[in-house]
Amino acid sequence: MSIVLSCKGLAKTYGEDRVVKGVDLDVRAGHIHSVIGPNGAGKSTFFNLISCQVPKTAGSAFFEGQDITSVAPHDLPHMGVSRCFQRTNVFPKLTIYENVWAAVFARMNGGPVDFLKTIAGFGAVKDHAEEIITRVGLAHKLHDKAETLSHGQSRMLEVAVTLAGVPRIILLDEPTQGLAPEATHEMTDLIKELAAEYTILLIEHKMHIVMGISDVISVLNLGEKIAEGTPDEIQKNQMVQDAYLGRLR
């Protein structure tokens, strides 16, 4: 399978703090590629570099051959890259439908004139938005405000808004964070399902979750990639065990 996302020496320094220290990482089409590592390993920062949320210090990331680390953040979804955030980051005073509709419309509008038409007039956008909302199990909440959702439902909405961007690769930052076991299960099932359609780069702190669903796992520790391989290989890797038990710190 071909490589769709290729990171080369991606690095971020905050003052003296080298948070991400030159990470190389290749993601193959159709894979669930997980990035794991202890808290503070630099996983989210690594994601923020790929998705132009923070300016990089060095390196680059190529998606389908194009460097995505030097474009404007609002161009990224239009290049087929969509991400979710570790801390739920939606539009609290708007309804679930509006949240998702807006994200679909961002990609499926036919130019400036469409922005002045009526919202109800876009059948295809409506259908796509409703399909995604149904898929994440929020259909019964369609016209509730996002701020009224439970934590688990918010995480689902976060993923829904991410999917709405009609992406070819989705970056998920700890989608199961803070979820109860039941909800965690639902979320992992959804990710598995999505893997049939999208390439997925998944950040996860909890090791047992990624073991079951990943094709490839990369391990970050203190800003460095210390291991990479199949779940089996990672499970056996002594360095990874040490990192998780804190012995490398």
Binding site: S51, Q53, P73, H74, D75, L76, P77, H78, S82, R83, F85, N89, V90, F91, P92, A102, A103, A106, R107, V161, A164, G165
Partner: peptide, 9 residues
């Protein structure tokens, strides 16, 4: 949420 508005394009 300007940050997310930007992130969705």
């Amino acid at each position: 949420n300007p940050n997310r508005a930007e992130a969705i394009g």
